[in-house]
């Protein structure tokens, strides 16, 4: 739900550039944070998790125009720093297939990376609260909250860029329910009812969140039964 599918050349250049700068800084921070020995050991895991995210993102659930990101699972398995790196790799690859513009890779990494990082910390917090039991429920709750926050970040991007917001989501109902301004180079002139748009999104988005939370919870629950070391190990 939070993946920005705005084509190249639609968002204002300054916000695209800001997305790249912030992502570059966050990537540098993440890479500095992880131990180089740990990275060598985890590279195959990064590869598999990133590949799984790509596979998930290419499976479009047509009726609600939604695809799962599996970013919270990436956060739980890789830890916040490596998950952010993994999200960048995923966004870079899928942008080459035309899935999300190449120029918005920075913004997409910020939004989905936030999902992964928040997912990790919230999962740890919920597991602590639940005394280490019910990993599935902890991850599902973490998924719902992370998606709520990342969708809010995406709405923030839409708000500051002053574009017609329905483009930022692949939610047809939202598109029909929004009276946008002129498309052109996408400066709206008073046609945007942002408050109404936010209400519409938060009315529809929970469908996607519920699906992603269910998948995340069930996958983490399965992994906890079969390979608990993956879910419970220390992450950076």
């Amino acid at each position: 739900m939070s993946h920005i599918h705005i084509p190249d050349g639609v968002l204002p250049l300054w916000i695209v550039a800001a997305g790249w700068v912030v992502t570059a800084l966050l990537l540098a921070l993440c890479i500095r944070r992880v131990d180089s020995g740990d990275v060598k050991r985890k590279l195959p895991l990064i590869g598999i998790v990133s590949a799984l995210m790509i596979a998930g993102m290419t499976l479009e659930i047509v009726p609600i125009a939604y695809h799962i990101n599996l970013s919270i699972i990436a956060g739980i398995l890789l830890g916040p720093a490596l998950a952010f790196v993994s999200v960048f790799i995923v966004d870079l690859i899928i942008s080459m297939f035309g899935h999300g513009g190449i120029t918005v890779v920075g913004l997409n990494t910020m939004v989905i990376g936030a999902e992964a990082v928040l997912g990790y910390y919230l999962f740890q917090a919920f597991r602590t609260v639940m005394a280490g039991r019910r990993a599935g429920w902890a991850s599902a709750l973490a998924a719902v909250m992370s998606l709520f926050l990342s969708t809010s970040i995406m709405l923030g991007v839409v708000y500051v860029s002053h574009i017609n917001p329905a483009a930022a989501l692949h939610t047809e109902e939202a598109a029909h329910d929004t009276h946008g301004g002129p498309a052109g180079d996408v400066e709206t002139e008073g046609g945007l009812d942002f408050g109404r748009f936010v209400k519409t999104i938060f009315l529809l988005a929970p469908l996607g969140w519920a699906l992603e939370a269910a998948v995340t919870g069930l996958v983490v629950s399965y992994l906890y039964r079969v390979r608990p070391d993956l879910v419970a190990s220390e992450k950076t």
Binding site: H5, I6, P7, V10, A65, N164, P165, A166, A167, H170, T171, E172, A174, A175, H176, T178, G180, G181, P182, A183, V186, T188, G191
Partner: peptide, 9 residues
């Protein structure tokens, strides 16, 4: 997605 955008605007 571009169609959705175009429809919205």
């Amino acid at each position: 997605f571009a169609l959705i955008f175009a429809a919205a605007g």
